[in-house]
């Protein structure tokens, strides 16, 4: 069964149709890229999957379960992790405390009132930080991290929930070009190891073509193409969208 099944998702803002009737599936363990020019509706689409925005119509099924109007925190509990276009972390905490807070929530211990939070799940937190390459930064205040490292930290926070599906909205935006491939290879490896599916939006085509198993292309709110790197590269409609047409 598909991990995620999206059926006819539609959203308008005022008179502007941002997303029109988008349908696709995400399979276990796959890296699925959602691409398209600015304003194509990628982020709107993402925010409807994560529960941040209610769609006007259509539905989202997570392994057959309808999650369309659930709030983000319930969607998270069902095994969907996500990272944001502009990184969202807990700036008043150290790097490790960020992950510990996520682990406490995952283990449903956030309402405990006595034992100090930073004594919980230390090994698990450090293992996650090791995975994303932040092991040496664990004790640093997270507000001091470089932007690329913030992206890694956000990934570790999302992974703490042991997601079956990870939604990443522009995971490499703002990251130095040299670091991008490393970050996405890391995600791809995690996906293959853990049979976790990853749906991501991305503007860097090199990254998309090298990492994604499958690519969805959006333009003006609709899906216009779907396929692997080779077929997408050769698709005339996609070329028209990205390079413009003579007409």
């Amino acid at each position: 069964m598909s991990i995620l099944e999206v059926q006819g998702l539609t959203k308008s803002f005022g008179g502007v149709a941002a997303v029109r009737g988008v349908s696709f599936t995400v399979e276990p363990g796959e890296m699925l890229a959602l691409i398209g020019p600015n304003g194509a509706g990628k982020s709107t689409c993402f925010n409807m999957l994560g529960g941040q925005l209610p769609p006007d119509s259509g539905q989202v099924l997570l392994q057959g379960q309808n999650i369309t109007f659930l709030p983000p925190r319930h969607i998270c509990r069902l095994g969907v992790g996500r990272t944001f276009q502009i990184t969202q972390i807990f700036a008043s905490m150290s790097v490790r405390e960020n992950v510990q807070t996520a682990l406490l929530s995952h283990h449903r211990q956030s309402w405990k009132l006595w034992r100090a939070a930073d004594t919980h799940h230390i090994t698990e937190a450090e293992a996650l930080l090791y995975k994303v390459g932040l092991a040496t930064q664990a004790a640093r205040p997270s507000a001091e991290l470089a932007y690329g490292d913030l992206k890694r930290l956000e990934l570790a926070i999302a992974l703490a929930g042991q997601p079956r599906l990870l939604l990443m909205d522009e995971p490499t935006a703002g990251v130095a070009p040299a670091e991008r491939a490393g970050l996405m290879d890391l995600v791809a490896n995690l996906a293959r190891e853990g049979q976790m599916a990853v749906l991501f939006t991305e503007h860097d085509m090199e990254i998309v073509f090298s990492c994604a198993d499958r690519i969805l292309v959006m333009d003006h709110g609709s899906l216009i193409a779907e396929g692997n790197a080779t077929s997408i590269r050769a698709n005339p409609q996609v070329q028209a969208v990205y390079l413009g047409t003579a007409a």
């Binding site: 807070t101 999302a158 703490a160």
Partner: peptide, 13 residues
């Protein structure tokens, strides 16, 4: 407080 969006995304009410 630090990030409502992130907190909700890790399952916090």
């Amino acid at each position: 407080r630090d990030s409502t969006q992130r907190a909700e995304a890790i399952g916090l009410d």
